[in-house]
Deep mutational scan, measured.
Amino acid sequence: KAKLLVLLYAFVATDADTICIGYHANNSTDTVDTILEKNVAVTHSVNLLEDSHNGKLCKLKGIAPLQLGKCNITGWLLGNPECDSLLPARSWSYIVETPNSENGACYPGDLIDYEELREQLSSVSSLERFEIFPKESSWPNHTFNGVTVSCSHRGKSSFYRNLLWLTKKGDSYPKLTNSYVNNKGKEVLVLWGVHHPSSSDEQQSLYSNGNAYVSVASSNYNRRFTPEIAARPKVRDQHGRMNYYWTLLEPGDTIIFEATGNLIAPWYAFALSRGFESGIITSNASMHECNTKCQTPQGAINSNLPFQNIHPVTIGECPKYVRSTKLRMVTGLRNIPSIQYRGLFGAIAGFIEGGWTGMIDGWYGYHHQNEQGSGYAADQKSTQNAINGITNKVNSVIEKMNTQFTAVGKEFNNLEKRMENLNKKVDDGFLDIWTYNAELLVLLENERTLDFHDLNVKNLYEKVKSQLKNNAKEIGNGCFEFYHKCDNECMESVRNGTYDYPKYSEESKLNR
């Protein structure tokens, strides 16, 4: 008799109507990190870190770059004969040098303040090359056809396309004075040089004057150069050297050249137009028929994500570079809930034993079982409120962090190594801060989002509990077992918050 009662009780308990509160689960393989956990499985997430590029040089917003090819900045601007293909260059979106560009200054020497000139050019998007001192009329008392084997072109001695090597005419090199007034309405880049012979005999042979000088002056520039005559090792078949100089001439300003020898005179100059998204990159990537809004030396990035880990040097509207390998923000729920887990921000989770793959029309909802059958029903209101809140948060985070910009490298010469090392340390410090901030932001927001979901499920549970009161009992896994019969209409009233407690209280009292 006792065995019969136990079996009867078990049958009745199993047959009781139930309603459970749960949440969506799926077959997603997404994982995120939080402050407290690593690799948390979630139903949905968004990636904030771009880690792919196309490996190509592309047009930037429809404008092609200027590819210097086998030449570098120095060779292009001075007019190395091997860089003749660059003479027609007028406009570009950015400038590309190759790491091993070999054609710079063909006659050995240095372009002074080269690093600063590169910085200036990094904001130039177009130029006009014009004859600042016409070759045939500007130097009537001097020979202007100086050439050298060091600047050979097609097997013949030649010289820079933008400079003139002035030497004596006959047996004399009379003092020369020439000036140019900038009437271009924009900055003009003027380049010139000073020749330093290897011996007094060479000085006399070329310029006749043993104590020659070169003077260059404008409103913002004033220097006097004296040739340094000295024996030097042979470089590119030359014992002599040429140093090259430049200045930016403001609109309306005048530049005056005065010399008694050794002047490498300007022939062509450049009127410059600035462009905020221009820059110089060093890259071996090849040019393709493609378009982008962000270019790196590795390749083009076409992404609206706020961060990238491809390269710190970028041109155009680019994500911020960070050292992170993963920045994924959760938008959905835990896919593998932890039992009795309390989140960092106070939300209680884990009283549900598992997510439901059968509930596909919402994030949170119900599963019921009664004599009429069983089924899932999503709670659309709480789901939609959660979707709206999380979507707004993700968009806000992306908008705040998605300050796209150009980031170019800084140039230092060989004598500025300590400054370069200090600059690298400062840049590394800023990069570490950006990386830390980005990672911390994602970790915190992921923790908040998961706790937010847990709290929403808990609130749904409490909503049902407050309606049923003692007409049902909690069975410990997020479910309630009714003390009365609850048909589909009754189940719907529980879900929509209109459950009639008094209607079922007498039946429940008897069954309790």
Rank of each mutant, 00 (worst) to 15 (best):
K1F: 15
A2Y: 14
L7R: 10
A10R: 06
D15H: 13
D17P: 04
D17T: 02
T18P: 00
I21V: 15
S28L: 02
D30V: 14
V32I: 15
I35S: 06
L36C: 13
K38N: 09
A41C: 15
S45T: 07
V46H: 07
N54F: 15
L57T: 04
L57C: 09
C58N: 10
L60Q: 01
K61S: 04
G62D: 13
P65Q: 01
P65V: 05
L68Y: 03
C71M: 15
I73S: 00
L77R: 01
L78T: 10
G79H: 03
N80Q: 07
N80M: 02
P81R: 07
E82T: 09
P88E: 11
S91D: 11
V96T: 07
V96H: 09
T98G: 10
N100H: 05
N103P: 00
N103R: 05
P108E: 06
L111N: 03
L111K: 01
I112D: 11
I112T: 14
Y114D: 03
R118V: 11
S122Y: 04
S125Y: 13
S126R: 13
L127V: 13
L127Y: 11
R129C: 08
E131R: 05
I132K: 06
I132F: 13
S138D: 02
S138F: 11
H142N: 12
T143Q: 06
G146W: 06
V149E: 06
V149G: 02
V149D: 04
C151K: 11
H153Q: 13
K156S: 13
S157E: 03
S157A: 12
Y160D: 05
Y160I: 06
R161L: 00
L163F: 12
L164V: 15
L164R: 05
D171R: 01
K175Q: 12
K175S: 12
K175H: 14
L176D: 00
S179N: 14
S179R: 06
S179T: 13
N182Q: 03
G185W: 01
E187F: 14
V190P: 00
H195S: 02
P197F: 07
P197I: 08
P197G: 07
S199A: 08
S200P: 06
Q203A: 14
Q204S: 08
Y207E: 05
G210N: 11
G210F: 08
G210E: 10
V216G: 05
V216T: 08
A217D: 03
N220Q: 03
R223L: 09
R223T: 09
E228G: 11
I229F: 12
A231V: 13
K234G: 01
H239A: 10
H239Q: 15
M242Y: 05
Y244K: 07
Y244F: 13
Y244G: 04
T247S: 10
L248Q: 05
G252C: 03
G252W: 13
D253M: 04
E258F: 07
E258S: 15
A259V: 05
G261W: 12
P266S: 03
W267R: 10
Y268I: 08
S273C: 00
I280D: 09
